[in-house]
Amino acid sequence: MEKEINYTDNAPIMKIKNLSKSYHTLPVLKDISLDVQRGEVIAIIGPSGSGKSTLLRCMNALETISGGEIWFKDTCINRMKKLPKLRTEVGMVFQHFNLFPNMTVLKNIMYSPIKVRKEKKEDVEKRAIELLKTVGLEDKKDVYPDTLSGGQKQRVAIARALAMNPEILLFDEPTSALDPEMVGEVLSVMKNLAQTGMTMLVVTHEMGFAKEVADRVVFMDEGYILEEGKPQQIFEEAKNERVKAFLDKML
């Protein structure tokens, strides 16, 4: 479980500098700075409307930003023209899965590697089935997403994102749309994934997951990062009153 993250390495995989973002005149992110190291699992927590999801969506350029910079490896993504290229390296898992209902599970997973990355069909299929095994759904490869439960859909969505071999995986409230009894199966897939050394940013309301799996927890409210640190620093020794009040209600 214990893994080594090199915090001293001064080349983080993603570097956010003084990021701000507004919708028209409404500011949603204010002066956000955050470094993400390779292999790190970061949980982003906080009340609804605090800008957590927006922050995540800025990281693969699904949202345009109003100020500041986001660096992925050595490119500044808000000045980047080739967004599809960026998004093959920064994967995303959504709250509402966003599986394609007109394709089978296998085709959902194989589509982008074949069409976008131009990989060989046989290689992709092998990898797709391997991924389905790791999320425990290899028997569902030929069904359509509509016949799956929410938890199964989300596991397929994770497999689909992984099939692109991303360097970072962003999770936007992956368990918020699920029935309570299905949350566990998705979280355990994510936990296994974290142990493989995948760099993950997870916006979540699952405090147990944040505490147990995350290397670092970021607390956001009203567009600011109020506090960040190791899970125990946030959950047990929080300094900020707002953070304490929120966590008291959640735990």
Binding site: G91, P101, K115
Partner: peptide
């Protein structure tokens, strides 16, 4: 068609054109 379909396709690295013609339009 749900906006999520477009976002899902874009997040998998598809170009906006492919997203429209291969994912959204068929649905």
């Amino acid at each position: 068609i749900d906006r999520g379909q477009t976002e899902g396709a874009l997040a998998l690295g598809m170009s906006p054109t492919r997203t429209m013609y291969c994912i959204v339009l068929p649905q």
